[in-house]
Amino acid sequence: MKISMIVAPYDSGRRHEGFGKGPDALLAGGLVETLALSGHDVDVVEIDKIKGLDDREIATGFAVCKAVAEKVSESRASGSFPIVLAGNCLTTCGALAGEAADSLIWFDQHGDINTPETSPFGFLDGMALATALGLCWRPMANAIPGFEAVDPAKCMLVDARDLDPDEKTLLASLPVIHAEVDEAADKVSALKKAGVSRTHLHIDLDVHDPDRLQVNRYAEPGGPEPAALREAASCMARSVPIVGLTLSAYDPAFDAKGEVPPEVGRLVVDFVAAMERI
């Protein structure tokens, strides 16, 4: 398979800091080589430094989304499958736009479905899924080339074991399909019934059980072990038309033994193999 590995090394508007170091660490850990050994042709494309915004979180975050949308669109035009390595989850909005995706599967420890009105901390990345669903930051999101908000009925949120009270209230009012990892294979049928044709798969790596794989400082107890996540992601690839993948939120400062990159390599290889068997 031809793959475009699109690298967006930003965390809250800052380049190559915090989670922004994660994409390069995954590459240094052999992700491209692992895919090449499995027979895939991988082209690495890095998002250029966003200039003139002085590391402002909101403006830079959406500027990164615009740049990602353009690179993803170019990837599609060249016949490559886009995999975005991102610091922040918001970057998925750019991938959605570039892929013209009409549906979304979101694996995450968190809901990321706060809005500016409900967020207890004002953390932009905690509003990433809400932005993708058109619930907030609409003028900024609509400025991303090709962006169309995903219908909540065409979204499946997997795990989300660490939700704020207002997130729980909002989710209860929406037709979002909420599943545990071990339920994903069964509940994806509800997503298919919604009539999806182009699905983006987002995996925040802190969905993992931190006792098995620690990826950042926010990891809370629970979640799947790596093998279970691999199987769930592969099931999604076999079940719905996946048009792109985002991997986010890896902070190598919390991975002293370098355990995350090889696990991510196994995850991506299994996922791509499942897509090829369709």
Score class of each variant (00 low, 15 high):
Ala59Ser: 13
Asn88Tyr: 06
Phe62Ile: 02
Ala77Glu: 15
Val84Glu: 04
Lys49Arg: 15
Thr60Pro: 00
Val68Asp: 02
Pro82Arg: 08
Leu85Asn: 00
Phe81Asn: 10
Lys49Asn: 07
Asp43Phe: 11
Ser75Glu: 03
Val42Cys: 06
Ile47Asp: 03
Cys89Pro: 15
Pro82Lys: 11
Glu70Arg: 10
Ser78Ala: 12
Leu85Tyr: 04
Gly79Arg: 05
Arg76His: 09
Asp43Ile: 07
Val45Pro: 11
Glu46Ile: 05
Ala77Met: 13
Glu46Gly: 11
Gly79Trp: 11
Ala77Ser: 15
Ser80Lys: 06
Gly61Met: 04
Ala63Asp: 01
Ala67Lys: 08
Val72Cys: 00
Val44Ala: 10
Lys66His: 02
Gly79Phe: 11
Val44Arg: 04
Ser78His: 06
Val84Leu: 11
Cys65Ser: 04
Val72Asn: 00
Lys71Trp: 08
Gly52Asp: 07
Leu85Ser: 03
Ala59Asp: 12
Gly61Lys: 03
Glu57Cys: 10
Ile47His: 04
Thr60His: 06
Ala86Pro: 02
Lys71Gly: 00
Ala77Gly: 15
Ala59Glu: 15
Ile83Trp: 13
Ala67Asn: 07
Lys51Glu: 10
Val42Phe: 02
Arg56Ala: 05
Val44Glu: 09
Gly79Thr: 14
Val72Trp: 00
Ile83Ser: 13
Leu90Met: 10
Ala63Gln: 09
Leu90Tyr: 04
Val44Cys: 12
Asp54Lys: 14
Val84Pro: 00
Thr60Met: 12
Gly52His: 00
Ala59Thr: 09
Ile50Gly: 10
Lys51Gln: 10
Lys71Asn: 05
Gly52Lys: 12
Lys71Cys: 03
Leu90Arg: 01
Ala69Trp: 08
Ala63Pro: 02
Gly52Phe: 01
Ala59Pro: 14
Gly87Cys: 02
Pro82Phe: 07
Val68Phe: 05
Glu57Trp: 12
Glu74Phe: 12
Gly61Cys: 09
Asp43Cys: 10
Asn88Ile: 05
Ser73Val: 06
Thr60Gln: 14
Glu74Ser: 11
Phe81Arg: 09
Lys71Gln: 05
Glu57His: 08
Arg76Leu: 08
Thr60Gly: 12
Val64Cys: 01
Glu70Val: 07
Asp41Met: 06
Thr60Glu: 13
Glu74His: 11
Glu70Asp: 05
Pro82Gln: 11
Ile47Pro: 07
Cys89Met: 07
Ser78Phe: 02
Val72Met: 03
Arg56Asp: 13
Leu53Arg: 10
Gly52Met: 07
Ile50Tyr: 04
Cys89Val: 01
Val45Ser: 06
Ser80Gly: 08
Leu90Asp: 03
Arg76Gln: 15
Ala59Tyr: 09
Val68Ile: 12
Ser73Phe: 01
